[in-house]
Design a protein around this nucleic acid. Structure first.
Lengths: 243, 243
DNA sequence: GTCTAATAATCTGTGTTCAATATAGTGCAC
DNA sequence: GTGCACTATATTGAACACAGATTATTAGAC
């Protein structure tokens, strides 16, 4: 089932949505995106329009557009006359996200074994080195974000912008879920599994890579305790470094 | 790889995005959605804010939110200071959409063979009857929309709201693509293939169902001529029946 | 007659203002 | 002392108005 047509070696920027071109509000979206990816912002956190305006120094219009965009991706909840809140995924939502990822990503990597070329692979190797460095520094924010980005970069190799967007959204929601239900002790992606996935791709073993990705996601999923949830309300100005 | 947890037999309404709760603007989104699904509105069509306001009888705010939502799904293009236009997918985008569908839907149906229960299947049978009726009546709009909806309803059986949303978006974009590059002669989904897919699910043959879905998508894809494109500019009031 | 340039009109983008709703605080009653 | 009701404040939602940009139209020149 080799179904790859076009390729794209370039980084394929973390944030950009490609569709909504306005660069101003994309900044707001990206900042919130990465804040969630790094788990510096907890579910249920209220995203007050006024505060976001002064933190990012943009008009209320832009903030509202950004919030709507995030809401359409299930990353924030928009409650009428109450405001925007970082989404607090239900156990069912958590399962749905993981199920979707387990459905898509193994197949994706299967195809990658055929399509991936050396520049792509060395790029991934580079990324894994960054992950190890972050582990060495015990830099929690970086560890978590890089873990997620690995999956996005995997998708980026396909050059399929549709898939890339889907994966990015799922990865971000996963960050929320892991932050909510995960054991704050161990990191979201078990270290070493990314490396073995990459190794399987390198060796050109589609079935093996597919299986490793599936199990990798299963490991993360099984590390969750879906009965628990921990509410918090950090200060927005601190989270975003009062830009 | 049976990865199904929750099920949901109910229809799982065609339109609703589940996330953006505001019912007012969801109407606008849905109307444009179905207009695209029925191919009554062609790519490059300008969606003037003012006209949409009077056609749907809602404020400009709502219209703009709806357009932003549609833009985030790649269904309309938002050009700065120029307005909103129905997206005109490039050949690469078309390939990306089909590649994504061929990656996701076969796996989805594979899982469905294990999870699907009789109410789901009879619901699908009902749907296929509708498709046949539309064929008998040569009701082009219905034929096209029902063809797309079949795939959404397949996804709905999973009860996975994340997957449902992904599939709905891909199906809608497919409608745009088929309208652009497809031979206006034969319909978007070859008749009969839906029935054989359902039959494979009923018999509980995952690999067979998976293969049929893949080939089904391949048939649609191969029926496109990606070199051609046909510009039009129909009147909005007519398309939406001047509601 | 056609092409170019300038002007006018239309439409989008943005900031502002006002109304509606929810929340928090206060006071009163039990 | 606790619970309920009412008031006051703050925040969101929507309409309005204005500024900027783009497109269409018209006039003029070659």
């Amino acid at each position: 089932m080799q179904i790859w047509e076009v390729k794209l070696t370039q980084p394929a920027a973390m944030g950009g949505d490609a569709y909504t071109s306005n660069p101003e509000e994309q900044i707001v979206v990206d900042r919130i995106y990465t804040a969630i990816m790094e788990q510096r912002i907890a579910p249920k956190t209220k995203l007050s329009e006024a505060k976001l305006c002064e933190v990012f120094g943009v008009g209320r219009m832009r903030v509202r557009r950004a919030l709507l965009l995030l809401a359409s991706q299930g990353i924030v909840d928009l409650e009428s006359n109450r405001g925007a809140f970082i989404a607090c995924p239900s156990p069912k939502e958590a399962n749905d996200v993981f199920t979707s990822r387990m459905l898509i990503e193994p197949q994706l990597v299967h195809g990658l074994c055929i399509a991936a070329q050396s520049p792509d692979l060395s790029h991934l190797e580079e990324h894994i080195k960054l992950e190890h460095a972050a582990h060495a520094d015990s830099d929690r924010s970086h560890i978590i974000r890089l873990s997620g980005e690995f999956h996005v970069k995997l998708a980026s190799i396909s050059g399929n912008s549709v898939l890339i967007r889907i994966i990015r959204e799922l990865v971000t929601r996963t960050s929320l879920i892991v932050g909510l239900f995960g054991d704050s002790g161990h990191s979201s992606c078990p270290d070493g599994e990314h490396a073995s996935i990459l190794a399987a791709i390198k060796k050109g073993e589609p079935s093996e890579a597919e299986r490793l990705v599936f199990e990798h996601l299963q490991h993360i999923h099984s590390g969750l305790d879906l009965s628990r949830s921990k509410p918090q309300r950090p200060d927005l100005a601190k989270v975003f470094g009062m830009a």
